[in-house]
Amino acid sequence: MSTLDKRMSAAEIVGRLRSGMTLGIGGWGPRRKPMALVREILRSDLTDLTVVSYGGPDVGMLCAAGKVKKLVFAFVSLDAIPLEPWFRKSREAGAIEVLELDEGMFQWGLKAAAFQLPFLPTRVGLGTDLLELGGLRTVQSPYDDGEVMVAMPALKLDAALIHVHRCDHRGNVQALGPDTYYDEWFAKAADQCFVSAEELVPAMEDAYPEDARANLFERCFVTGVTEARGGAHPTSMPPSYGWDMGWMKRYAGAAKDPGDWSAVSAQFVGASEEEYLASVGGMEAVGALPLPVF
């Protein structure tokens, strides 16, 4: 009988992944990214990944480290530094395949996968280069209108990685903050969804019953959970902490000088999560990062 105990270490989670998998990464640009799990992938020998992401430093780092075979994206950005420098380097070197999508088509593809459909129709993409470059096909309405639309294919994920504020051992999650982006649909589009949390509580109903509306998706969509305090750093995790602008400037600068990932990966990934967190000042420093204003 299953115990519903889904607790794992970050290394165990990454141990469940395989080279060649299609991996969805939650969050949006430099916001609420599951960076502790991304760093664990960067410490592993996984390779040949298809990464599906509203891209931020997660994408840049995985590209820089040569982990990415193909990227499914609508943008890759650090927001305050609009162009993600390591992603650019990979693209301009022709090092990765891409499927470039619109932001809305992207979530539509996740929803198609979540609903176990081959595609969902949309007008988005008509009149642009996305169709031909992405090999996207059209579909005609069977009703009297006969409209021809883009058939956005399901973005089926082998695994999704998501970072939340709280979870318990059974996979009851709570995501606080003003926006959870499309994390819900990454979870539902994936065969396996792994969640890292700022706080792992023994039982959500005892710890935070008053915040049950922050339960972003049901626990049946959760395969494994792990605690990762500061697990979104250097991306923002409101209301807990903002993004680390100093980190992003150093990271962007390193893409120019020395421009070689292997020379700088230790400082941006660390040999272990404990070492990484200590290197950025520990939770005291992370928790003090101001929330960005727009």
């Binding site: 891209g55 994206f73 609508a74 943008f75 890759v76 950005s77 609009p82 162009l83 992603f87 650019r88 693209r91 301009e92 070197a93 022709g94 395949e97 891409v98 470039e100 999508l101 619109d102 932001e103 809305g104 088509m105 007008r123 988005v124 993409g125 008509l126 009149g127 642009t128 280069d129 996305l130 470059l133």
Partner: peptide, 27 residues
Amino acid sequence: LSALGGTHAQPKTQMLGARGFPGNGIY
């Protein structure tokens, strides 16, 4: 907003990506 020059496989200058432009434009 996507890329300048080169090819789709290897643009000369990679920019942001299409972002929400395709959907904004059609809707």
